[in-house]
């Protein structure tokens, strides 16, 4: 079955991203397809490679990047939400004249339409948030 995933919260304040990660891993193990993971609201903060948790804590951003590489996941960070919160890729850096970028491996920045498309294309859409 084809799943769309929406994540509304950042990596550490709320459990949402961890729950979603565990859900997505279980879905992939069961042979399901993840059409797209869409990061919205503070969820865009899951997409910065500057995350450096202490050694005894999990690195959720890296976990998403690794899972994306292994399963060719489409991790999409909402552009409008990302601009508000300072999540930047090379294109955004250029467009908005920023002095750097911070997007993590496996993530891309795109429009809100990608969420609606995930709703249309997926057989199930599951939202994780606060």
């Amino acid at each position: 079955m084809k799943f769309g995933i929406q994540i509304n919260e950042g990596p550490y304040t709320h459990e949402a991203s961890t729950t979603a990660l565990n859900f997505v891993k279980a879905a992939l193990e069961a042979g399901h397809e993840i059409f797209r993971v869409f990061f919205y609201h503070d969820g865009v903060n899951n997409g910065t490679r500057y995350t450096t948790p202490p050694q005894d804590d999990r690195n959720i951003v890296a976990a998403w990047s690794e899972l994306a590489a292994e399963h060719k996941l489409d991790l999409v960070v909402c552009v409008a939400a990302a601009q508000r919160r300072g999540i930047v890729d090379e294109g955004e850096q250029e467009r908005n004249g920023k002095d750097g970028n911070n997007i993590a491996d496996g993530f891309r920045i795109s429009g809100l339409g990608q969420l609606i498309e995930a709703g249309i294309q997926s057989e199930r859409l599951v939202v994780f948030g606060d």
């Binding site: 509304n8 919205y40 609201h41 409008a80 939400a81 429009g111 809100l112 339409g113 969420l115 609606i116 498309e117 709703g119 249309i120």
Partner: peptide, 19 residues
């Protein structure tokens, strides 16, 4: 919280998809 505002943005975008 920002949820109301950003959710309204999603709703407006959805209109372009004629759902």
């Amino acid at each position: 919280t920002i949820y109301a505002w950003e959710s309204l943005e999603v709703v407006l975008i959805s209109a372009a998809f004629e759902q």
